[in-house]
């Protein structure tokens, strides 16, 4: 029974990472790729860590797996946020189909009025 649970967790985790990689190849611009990576890759890592902990139920494994989960959950959004912010400042070209870009509107307005707050 435990073997089945661990196998399913392992396969689902690696499939989530595969989905993240397909998304990186397929999606159209930087921000969309970041969407794919932040969520799918960290969710995959969490599932696989759960598999390892269930298969080796020892204290040290549990603590280290928990540490990796905490690092991934807390640091992945921050790193992505910083890179996305810089990418928007660098005027990295956006993909097709954008409905609105209110950040660009705000930056344009500030440039026109000569103030530098953002």
């Amino acid at each position: 029974m435990m073997e089945w649970i661990v196998s399913i967790l392992l396969v689902f985790g690696s499939l989530f990472m595969l989905v993240a990689a397909i998304g990186v190849v397929k999606l159209s611009d930087v921000y969309m790729r970041m969407h794919a990576i932040t969520k799918a890759a960290s969710l995959g890592a969490i599932l696989m860590l759960a598999a390892v902990f269930l298969w080796h139920p020892q204290w040290i494994v549990g603590i280290e797996a928990f540490m990796v989960v905490i690092f991934v959950i807390f640091t992945a959004p921050i790193g992505t946020h910083m890179i996305a912010r810089v990418a928007h400042r660098m005027d990295v070209p956006k993909g097709e189909g954008y409905i609105m870009d209110e950040l660009q509107d705000e930056l344009d307005r500030q440039e026109k009025e000569g103030e530098e707050t953002l």
Binding site: S14, M17, A21, A41, G44, A45, M48, A51, V68, V72
Partner: peptide, 8 residues
């Protein structure tokens, strides 16, 4: 992330 997965 993929390397972490490979290690696991």
């Amino acid at each position: 992330s993929l390397v972490i997965g490979l290690i696991l």
